[in-house]
Design a protein around this nucleic acid. Structure first.
Lengths: 164, 164
DNA sequence: TTGGAAAGTCAACAAGGCTGACATAAAATC
DNA sequence: GATTTTATGTCAGCCTTGTTGACTTTCCAA
């Protein structure tokens, strides 16, 4: 266990503890996506569709370019997904009023319904986990995750309505 | 903000807080995989190879079946990845001594070297995050993640050497 | 000795990433 | 007003990594 840290207060930074954190992320992310994945199967959609729906719901009227920077994929890849959501009537693409080159994306009622179904499944698991461990642990959870993000993603993250 | 919770102590369970948790997971996981992904590109490997290498390193002499249950993919999918790692000399597949049908997987020196490179990148980011937020937050982080896992994954998780 | 488990492999397919090239409309700039 | 830049869409083709199904070989254990 000699980790070279010296102080006992740094034992949480040992390689073993860090590895535990890494595996915790891996296994927890699996759980995190498991419920939505099951629901998406019924509609023959994938995780990519879920992500698009999620962020369009979070920021209605968002542009394609903004969505691209949040999702970090190419426009070709996003377009394939978006195309289907629009064709299936889950997403509406509105030509920009000030700048007509832009497309503003909003969920239709049908899209909002699927979003609600997916979101509720995910929130339900998160709620159970939060409830099981209490508010202080939740604070720590959020602090570590935010510290683990890339800087530009941290920017997108803190833009949620409920800014702390 | 009326959430029906009643007590102020349950404000951390509002839908807004849960959504923040969901997005935190999404963005943090991206950061979590970003560094290894960059390294893997140099070797033309993908995340699937990383996962295999990681868990073989964690449990040397593990069997293919055990690895399958940890990774949650089909044997055909794992076989493709494993095949390449073996052909490239990163993984050695040893015929079981007691049961000769089983293959026991171990990293070669070359495989261990790549594992170390990937692991160090990932630990480095985790270390920075842990250090930035302190031990109490780390405890909360681990508690929430563990509570979010599926039960069978929680089993695999607590099997790490450094069991708490 | 035979049933079934463990493992490997072939084939075919799909989702969802990627690059590159090209088209169009509209805004911005010169 | 002409040109350039920006935002978006789309075609084609490639890769990784997941899937299902079918089949074989090996070999433990009842």
């Amino acid at each position: 266990m000699a980790e070279g840290g010296g102080s006992d207060s740094l034992l949480f930074l040992t390689d073993e503890q860090l590895k535990k954190g890494i595996e915790a992320m891996f296994f927890a992310y699996r759980g995190f996506t498991a419920d939505p994945d099951r629901i998406l199967e019924n509609y023959a959609y994938g995780r990519a569709h879920h992500r698009a729906i999620h962020f369009i719901n979070r920021s209605p009227e968002t542009t394609v370019n903004n969505l691209l920077s949040i999702l970090g994929v190419t426009k070709q890849s996003l377009n394939r997904v978006l195309r289907r959501l629009i064709d299936d009537g889950l997403v509406e693409s509105r030509v920009g009023k000030r700048d007509k080159r832009e497309r503003h994306l909003v969920l239709t009622a049908k899209g909002a319904a699927l979003e609600a179904e997916l979101s509720e499944a995910q929130r339900s698991r998160m709620r159970a986990a939060f409830r099981a461990v209490g508010p202080d642990a939740v604070t720590g959870f959020r602090q570590v995750l935010e510290a683990m993000m890339d800087v530009d993603m941290r920017h997108h993250f803190s833009l949620l309505k409920d800014s702390e």
